[in-house]
Amino acid sequence: MPGRYGVPTDPDYQERLAEFEARIRRGEKIEPGDWMPEEYRRQLIRMISQHAHSEVVGMLPEGAWITRAPTLKRKMILVAKVQDEAGHGQYLYHAAETLGISREAMLEALLSGKAKYSSIFNYPTLTWADIGTIGWLVDGAAIKNQTMLAQCSYGPYSRAMVRICAEETFHHKQGKEMVLLYAQGTPKQRAMAQDAINRWWWPALMMLGPHDKDSPNTEVLVRWGIKTKTNDQVRQEFINEHAPEILAAGLSIPDPELRYDEKSGNWLHGPINWDEFWQVVSGNGPMNKERLEARRRAHAEGAWVREALEAYAAKQKKAAVAV
């Protein structure tokens, strides 16, 4: 399909760009096969593949606790949640593939360490209360972002997000329920819940991305309807929902400057340590190396399964031809 991805040097670029932007303003979805700027495609591939990798790597910190879940009920919930995250990775790789990038190329980028994924998954899960806190705060932050992305102008990404959001709500609720129970439990349980909140609060705020003024892509992403809100807007929504709930549960938030602003109706937070964020993003977080090694090991150890399935498929094909 010549000219499906337009570049500014195309003679009809300006005209087609105007049509494309008008479609987005009318609330139409852009679908595979439609004309789109090459830059729209590039931004989507970047965002969707990073998002897919985050779902896949996100299985690791929680998966580590499946064998140590305190009850059968909690174990079944955690297994189901980790399975869901694997599924989310699949939905998202599919959405990126509709833009003409192969799954193999994306996996290669992840395993080689070239691709980015969410900074949050480079923190360790130290106690069982981290599992509840991840559900409540990390999935809670992810939902705010994903609900916004469900409005995305690109059809396949939007559909993946709608499917994911429907499942994420369970992740959020089970985590919230767990932390609230511990907050009302024994002193030891309370202390464990508080310790988890203390460690995950700031990384949860950071995972929603740099401030708008430091986020050079935001303008074009919003204009093309890839994002419908900025990082700071999504972060504010997250804080406004979660801060009062954490405090109502009798837990504290590790931000001495956090306060409710009557005038704006917002919960205002103190300065975020962006040095830490950039350290983690650039590979120096507490768990970056381990996460990548775990992915590589899983890929290498699964090689025989892939070979066996391929051999079986070849045999079936041969048998079908012989008949």
């Binding site: 009920k73 919930i77 369970f170 609720k173 329920e177 609230l180 009302q184 009062p244 709930e245 954490i246």
Partner: peptide
């Protein structure tokens, strides 16, 4: 337990 309705009773003050 995969349905959000399962957790409908969750509230910050009294789960």
């Amino acid at each position: 337990y995969k349905q959000q309705q399962y957790y409908a009773t969750v509230s910050a003050s009294r789960p």
